[in-house]
Design a protein around this nucleic acid. Structure first.
Lengths: 204, 204
DNA sequence: GATAAAAATCGACACTGTGTAGACTTTCTG
DNA sequence: CAGAAAGTCTACACAGTGTCGATTTTTATC
């Protein structure tokens, strides 16, 4: 029996609409998986979420907005995970840990991440979301490189520029590998780790 | 007066349609530049080429076919340039030359190359075209790495796998840089070259 | 637990872009 | 110059999008 608990003003927080919103995003993710973005229609999403097109437009103004929301939801998850990085670690260990975490992220969210990348050009908001995410990674890579002794300037062979290139290498390599299989992803990770280590001058 | 030259069976080779086809592709490229793929409509292309939509469908079955043809035309150009590679060169020189050539390619054809990459997922034919192109580059990088002393096996830290990752690094880095400016492209090239050299163990 | 406001839903409509069909015109070829 | 081939046009049918006003359901409040 729901007595009047003091901290109970939270009860009404679960509007019906919140459930629907989640249903819409979940359906969108599912459809993305086996129809692809272009083939997926607003009607499909609505149907999957158990409402009509008209009702869906109450929640989101367009197909793009739906996908943007989905990307935002996923990307937020990435940020949480990234915040938990063991920053102050020995470079070699830090690199290994980062790559391992990246494999996990792509295993869990590969589909949405690929979609985000694909739509970065077309949908400015997704582009921003993804750029911000990339910047986090680049900053992390830069930090590791510098701790490994790479200079910190802005020249093309110094830490920030190298970190950027390495980030794109990882993004693209994982993008392709995650379309194939978990094994490929693991191999890709090993290759990227090796190149990262070499670039950091840690080939002792 | 067009007399009956022996080698004149070539006269009829320039059908009116050939001119139109070229006009369509040129228009498509122009529109791609300042409207983007999604915003560009079949009607726009037709209008730019001086015909109606109906007439355009005589040449190409869809918007995707038009863009595929444009990509094919561009990519063919890339292949020609690639064939002229000075394969047998000292690694350090080979890498510098390859990067220089890549900068030129992206300066000339950046727009279409970016479009090809964007549509690789959506349009299978473009995906194949681009994959084939990437494979050429990967093979070239592999050759250089091996000549520089990197082992030739299939393990993640041996030549082919590394070449693949380096290729994606270059693709993605140039993709982003070519959206900004020629200077950025030059910087990007320097960074990629540095990482490639390091990966090849040529940091004497 | 009645009630009024807010939230959610629906069906119909207008609009834009796609691809097709059939009739018509131009251009080649013998 | 006649028939065929190549090229072009207008009109149509169809898919999907986004908007609107009417209607129903939920939720908060007394």
């Amino acid at each position: 029996m729901p007595g009047h608990h003091p901290a109970r003003s939270r009860r009404a927080a679960e509007r019906k609409g919140d459930v629907r919103e989640r249903a819409i995003l979940d359906t969108c993710e599912a459809l993305l998986a086996h129809k692809g973005y272009d083939a997926m229609t607003v009607g499909d999403i609505a149907q999957g979420a158990g409402i009509t097109r008209g009702a869906l437009y109450f929640y989101y103004g367009s197909k793009q907005e739906v996908v943007t929301a989905l990307v935002a939801r996923t990307v937020e998850h990435l940020w949480e995970r990234s915040r938990a990085t063991a920053e102050a670690d020995e470079p070699r260990r830090a690199i290994a840990a980062a790559m391992q975490r990246t494999v996990e992220l792509w295993n869990e969210h590969g589909l949405v991440m690929r979609t985000a990348i694909d739509l970065s050009l077309t949908v400015p908001e997704i582009g921003e979301l993804w750029n911000h995410t990339a910047d986090l990674f680049i900053a992390a890579i830069t930090a590791v490189l510098e701790r490994a002794g790479i200079q910190a300037g802005t020249a093309p062979d110094q830490a920030p520029a190298m970190a950027r290139a390495l980030c794109w290498m990882i993004e693209r390599t994982f993008y392709h590998a995650s379309q194939e299989s978990r094994e490929k992803l693991q191999d890709a990770s090993a290759t990227c780790e090796h190149i990262w280590l070499t670039s950091a001058g840690l080939t002792t």
